[in-house]
Design a protein around this nucleic acid. Structure first.
Length: 230
DNA sequence: GTCCAGGGCCTAC
DNA sequence: GTAGGCCATGGA
């Protein structure tokens, strides 16, 4: 069993990683979206699909005047589904969008300000209970629409930090989250941009089966090129 | 044609 | 508890 670095060393390593990503990509200014409604809708639509496809669906919703949770709340799922086809699983996602908006109107009268007045932990549990929204989606909504200090974990996070040799093989969502909370500065802006940088790196350099390690800004501190696990 | 993308849920073992 | 199937488009 390999020993992971002590806490202070790990903090330095996470700082080094962030520094390299920031230098490579610049501030990401996340989440892409002009309104909180759009951020929430995008968070649901991006489940297991590239953002490129989501942008297309968002533009269709906007063109039809359905890029608000209020509009989605009063629109038939079949009509929503027809507009979000590029995001795959469109029938499921249309139901998820309605689930969320219906819950918002029933519970908070459709008022996001009122909803975001809730305690973060309570709100997280409530959203997880809606159905169709898992931890990543809920945490994305909390961080990027609600400005809550919640670290978002996704497939890229797991892949990149496994390949770096930092994450344990059996780490689950909560393990990753705990790790970042423990080792990152207590700063919402950092939580915001760190996750965004991870996604940016993943898209370009850390693909599932065809990573491009040679040009990756983390190559010199990554175990993966030396010990491929494929 | 093949691969896979910023998940989540359900079922079977 | 966990692997595997389902959902079912579009770009490289």
């Amino acid at each position: 069993m390999t020993m992971r670095p002590a806490t202070s060393e790990m903090k330095n390593l996470l700082e080094e990683i962030y520094s390299r990503l920031l230098n490579e990509f610049g501030h990401r200014n996340w989440w892409p979206g002009e309104t909180r409604d759009e951020v929430i809708i995008g968070a649901i639509l991006t489940q297991n699909v590239s953002w490129q496809n989501v942008e297309k669906a968002i533009s269709y919703l906007k063109r039809s005047g359905l890029l608000t949770l209020e509009a989605i709340h009063r629109t038939d799922t079949a009509e929503i589904a027809s507009l979000i086809k590029p995001t795959r699983f469109y029938n499921m996602k249309a139901r998820k969008l309605r689930n969320f908006s219906d819950w918002l109107f029933i519970t908070y009268g459709g008022d996001l300000d009122l909803m975001f007045q809730c305690h973060t932990g309570k709100l997280r549990q409530e959203m997880l209970a809606i159905g169709g929204l898992g931890e990543e989606t809920v945490d994305s909504i909390l961080l990027y629409a609600g400005n809550r200090k919640v670290f978002v974990v996704d497939a890229y996070t797991a892949r990149i930090f496994s390949r770096l040799g930092i994450a344990g093989k059996k780490w689950r969502y909560a393990d990753y989250q705990e790790f970042f909370i423990k080792h990152l500065d207590d700063d919402i802006a950092l939580y915001n941009d760190y996750h965004a940088q991870i996604v940016r790196l993943g898209i370009q350099y850390c693909k599932k089966t065809t990573p491009e390690c040679e040009k990756c800004p983390l190559n010199s501190i990554c175990e993966f090129p030396l010990v491929p696990t494929r």
